[in-house]
Design a protein around this nucleic acid. Structure first.
Length: 574
DNA sequence: GCCGTTTTCGGCCCGACTGTTTTCAGTCG
């Protein structure tokens, strides 16, 4: 059983216990354990019992359950729970404004156990007579069911960012608003975004909220107050605007940026120092306030190192900030090269010249052209020996033409075949400056087969980078199932860099794998995989993943100088 | 159910908003 399955099991237990009406702290304990396990960088099945007990949020009782899951694949506790509480109730928790108490109410007072039954009851007006319910609540629930039925998924980050930028512009034009910023999971660069959060400072909150909720593009107002207003926009996304006066802006921005789990951890730490922390600032036991104009003031008041938004997920960042031990995260300014772009020589839309000009415009020092090889699925004009030679000649000419500011390398994205061999022979690959290997099909093989296939490619001494190792395509497929640890060890041993692909449809490896890879000693490469010149702008998404994965610049070969990178390429061929 | 710079027991983050209520429970982030 893999970590994800174990984490999902505990999440399921938490949901069922919550509906059953179990003590909230017990529910919370299962949720915390589930989340720690989900982001663990080692497979639990390979851990000792002592190591398992060291997982944050895992104590005696949960460790015992993990052990039962690992040895039998089942859990008696969960099976008993499922006999008591219908599991079809869990999906009701996804409805807006429906929590565990309401679910239990519908179940116990109206014998409702599914989404369909709830909708029928709401349409028939049967919910309004339940204790604590009324017509308005019934209508809200019906609206919530409609939203859920529209299959509303979290948006990929690049789409959310586009919508957010439009709204940010609208919001900044509102009068009496002194400052406005993006917060929430978008500021933390999460791969998918559920809703948009904005924060602002003002002394006239009523007027600002009035302006905000009367903007074009709003479908309905979910709630409106002077501190917080929540609307659903026409794109189907919920948008929140939070306001505080300027002297409280820092604590507000910190709070709304989240994550919730990070904030809980931070507030617990504040409490141990006899301070109560909220979006309004700090308050001590004598009710004396400490206000935070800037976000940094929040962490400084607690004596902590400043924690960048991307790390605020309660994955040990507070502990590291206490000991002033946070990593120096990579930033977009550190990047000197893009080592994986395509041109119209294969399936790209831009020419060699256009890609080169774009790289110069972006201040890059090195650009590697890596068109698809023959043998790649859905590519009609994959590169073979002859066309690679031809392209090489043109690259040389282009290099002379543009001078020394940018070094153009000739690479290839060679297809990893089903048996792990490469689609081009070694004597062709050895003439190139850089070799990227990747697999684009047959992801549905068993985990061990996929793993072996990838490791065979990694072991080829001519391979420098493995691109998008898992092959996920958001949201179409999660890609190949892999045993990551042996892959990391092989990549480390053969000094092959693993890619963080910045294309928002890939973002592969993800942040957890990236963290794990670096911990195993692997080198990473962050590339755009741009198929048209302006897509080099996607780099920011790859950087977001790396920063969320605690990656510092030394581990990323794209931050290296020309000399260092060329040295590495030369030496590893030996 | 977890956990400890007052602790192996008694806590466990905090405020905003809504709706159904006459003072609060539920939900959310």
């Amino acid at each position: 059983m893999i970590n994800l399955e174990i984490a999902n099991t505990f999440e399921r237990i938490a949901n069922l216990l919550e509906i059953k009406g179990e003590l909230v702290y017990k529910v919370l304990a299962y949720r915390r354990a589930a989340e720690s396990i989900r982001v663990l960088t080692t497979e639990i099945s390979s851990m000792s019992s002592k190591e398992i007990m060291n997982i944050p949020g895992v104590g005696k009782a949960i460790a015992k359950k993990i052990n039962e899951l690992l040895t039998t694949g089942r859990l008696e506790f969960l099976q008993k729970l499922e006999r008591e509480v219908p599991s079809s109730l869990i999906e009701l928790l996804q409805i807006q404004d429906v929590g565990p108490k309401k679910v239990a109410l519908f179940w116990k007072h109206a014998n409702i156990t599914s989404l369909a039954e709830l909708e029928i009851a709401a349409l028939a007006g049967h919910l309004r007579n339940l204790p604590g319910m009324g017509e308005k609540s019934e209508a809200r629930i019906l609206a919530g069911i409609q939203v859920l039925k529209q299959h509303k998924q979290r948006l990929p980050i690049h789409k959310a960012l586009k919508i957010a930028e439009i709204w940010m512009e609208k919001i900044r034009k509102i009068q009496h608003l002194e400052r406005a910023e993006i917060a929430g999971s978008l500021r933390r660069w999460k791969t998918t975004i559920g809703d948009l959060d904005f924060v602002g400072s003002t002394r006239s909150p009523d007027q600002v909220m009035q302006f905000f909720s009367s903007q074009d593009g709003i479908k309905r107002i979910l709630s409106q107050g002077e501190n917080k207003t929540s609307v659903e926009c026409e794109e189907g996304l919920n948008i929140q605007l939070w306001l505080q006066p300027p002297e409280r802006f820092g604590s507000l921005w910190q709070f709304v940026t989240g994550s919730k789990e990070h904030n809980v951890r931070l507030r617990e730490y504040a409490q141990r120092h006899n301070l109560s922390l909220s979006e309004r600032g700090f308050i001590d036991q004598n009710l004396k306030e400490t206000l935070c104009f800037n976000e940094q003031d929040v962490y400084e008041t607690l004596g902590l190192q400043y924690i960048p938004p991307e790390l605020r997920e309660d994955r040990g960042e507070v502990q590291s900030a206490i000991s002033h031990n946070l990593p120096q995260l990579i930033s977009i300014e550190d990047i000197q090269s893009d080592l994986h772009v395509h041109t119209d020589w294969s399936d790209g839309k831009s020419t060699l010249e256009e890609m080169t000009q774009e790289a110069i415009k972006r201040g890059l020092r090195i650009l590697a052209i890596a068109d698809h090889s023959i043998g790649s699925p859905d590519i009609d004009n994959g590169m073979d020996e002859k066309r690679l030679q031809e392209q090489r000649r043109l690259i040389k000419q282009l290099q002379i033409h543009i001078g020394h500011s940018l070094l153009i390398l000739q690479g290839v994205e060679v297809e990893i075949l089903l048996d792990g061999s490469l689609a081009l022979p070694n004597d062709v690959l050895s003439k190139l400056d850089l070799v990227i290997a990747s697999m684009h099909d047959h992801h549905d093989q068993p985990r061990s087969v996929n793993t072996e296939r990838l490791i065979k490619a990694i072991s080829n001494p001519l391979v420098d980078i493995i691109a998008h190792p898992g092959g996920r395509e958001v949201p179409r497929t999660e890609g190949a199932e892999l045993e990551w640890e042996p892959i990391f060890h092989a990549a480390h041993k053969h000094q092959v860099a693993l890619e963080i692909n910045s294309n928002p449809f890939h973002l592969d490896m993800d942040e957890i794998r990236s963290h794990q890879a670096v911990n195993t000693g692997c080198l990473l490469s962050i590339n755009t995989d741009a198929h048209v010149s302006y897509r080099m702008d996607n780099l920011k998404f790859g950087i977001g993943i790396a920063r969320r994965g605690w990656v510092s610049s030394q581990k990323v070969i794209n931050t290296w100088s020309k000399a260092k990178l060329l040295d590495w390429l030369k030496n590893r061929k030996k």
